[in-house]
Computed example of a mutant assay.
Amino acid sequence: MAGLWLVTATAASAQLEVGGRPDIIRVDPREEAFSLSWSDTEERLQGTLRPAPIRKGQPFQVSLDVGSFEGAPFEGPIVLTLRPAGASLGQSVTVKPQGRHWEATFTPEEEGPHLLDVSFRTTRNKALHGAFEVGASVLPRQLAWGLLAVGTLALLGYSVFSLLRAPRPDPQETPPQTPEPTPPSAEVPPAAPESPEPVAPTPPPEPEPPRDP
């Protein structure tokens, strides 16, 4: 991916340089920024676009330094415009110097080849153009993890809510349960009372024999 945007930005800049146009800003992709450079017989311009690569929807900063080869230092404002390649209008801002630097922040609204127009006036009006590529938007890692955590918590909360909202049977509407019949126990009939054994009659006593006188 890094090699792709390096090649694309260099190719876009090379296309503008065809014919040796003097109003082209040289754009060189670096590891963390694009370096800008331009000069003519009167002034020179140096600066950076950072961070690199530049992506759709993510702000980047333009920092420029304009100096004069002769005469008084250049102190005028600079008009900066960011526009897609082929478009006549774009985001435009007038920047006053902050010390020896002119700075502005832009946020690309679409991806693809873009131009940064730099306009200022010294002995005459000068309008310069630098070409670079705007890549597709990518979520920052912290934001991606944050969205994943929020989605996980939302799913967990919805699951708990669904469990709590599940319909439960009303105890008043529960049909009474019929007790199962108990099998009759085998009752043992009471034992018949034992009849008493017959008692033999006692014989009468025998008479005593008569005594002799």
Rank of each mutant, 00 (worst) to 15 (best):
L156F: 12
P113N: 00
G130C: 01
F106H: 02
P171V: 08
A104N: 12
N125Q: 13
F161S: 07
D117G: 04
H129D: 08
A149R: 06
A127E: 15
H129I: 06
V138F: 01
H114W: 05
D170M: 03
W102T: 06
P97K: 15
T105N: 05
Q142E: 13
T122G: 03
T152M: 15
S162Q: 13
E110F: 05
L89M: 09
L153D: 04
L116Y: 00
S92I: 05
H101C: 02
P171Y: 05
F106I: 08
W102I: 11
K126N: 14
G99E: 06
G135A: 08
A166T: 13
G135H: 06
L147A: 08
A127H: 10
T123S: 11
S119T: 12
R165F: 07
A127K: 08
G112M: 07
R165H: 13
L143S: 10
F161C: 04
L153W: 14
L164M: 11
N125R: 15
A149D: 09
P140T: 04
H129K: 09
L89V: 11
L148Q: 13
W102S: 05
L116D: 00
T107A: 01
L116V: 06
A131D: 00
T94M: 08
L147H: 02
L89A: 15
H101A: 11
L148P: 03
P167L: 09
R165P: 04
R165C: 12
F120P: 02
L115V: 13
A149W: 07
F106Q: 05
S162C: 06
D170Y: 12
S92V: 10
S159E: 00
S92W: 02
E103P: 03
W102V: 08
S137E: 14
E111T: 10
V150E: 04
E111I: 01
E133R: 04
T122W: 05
L164G: 05
H114G: 06
L156W: 07
S92L: 08
H114A: 01
L89G: 03
A149Y: 06
N125E: 12
F106D: 07
E133K: 00
L139H: 08
Q91N: 13
W102Y: 11
T122Y: 02
H101G: 09
G157K: 00
L147Y: 08
P171F: 05
V95D: 02
A154L: 15
L143D: 04
Q98I: 04
A127S: 14
L116K: 03
G99P: 00
L164Q: 08
G112Q: 01
T152R: 12
V150F: 08
W102C: 06
G146C: 01
K126S: 14
R168D: 00
L148A: 15
G130A: 02
L164W: 03
V95K: 01
V160I: 15
F120N: 00
S92P: 08
P169T: 12
V138S: 07
K96H: 08
D170A: 15
K126Q: 10
V95I: 14
R121Y: 09
P113V: 00
R141Y: 12
W102H: 09
P169L: 15
L128E: 04
P97E: 05
W145S: 14
P113S: 04
S162L: 14
S92K: 13
P113F: 01
A149M: 11
Y158R: 15
A131Y: 01
G151C: 05
A104Q: 02
V118N: 00
P171H: 13
L115W: 09
L128S: 03
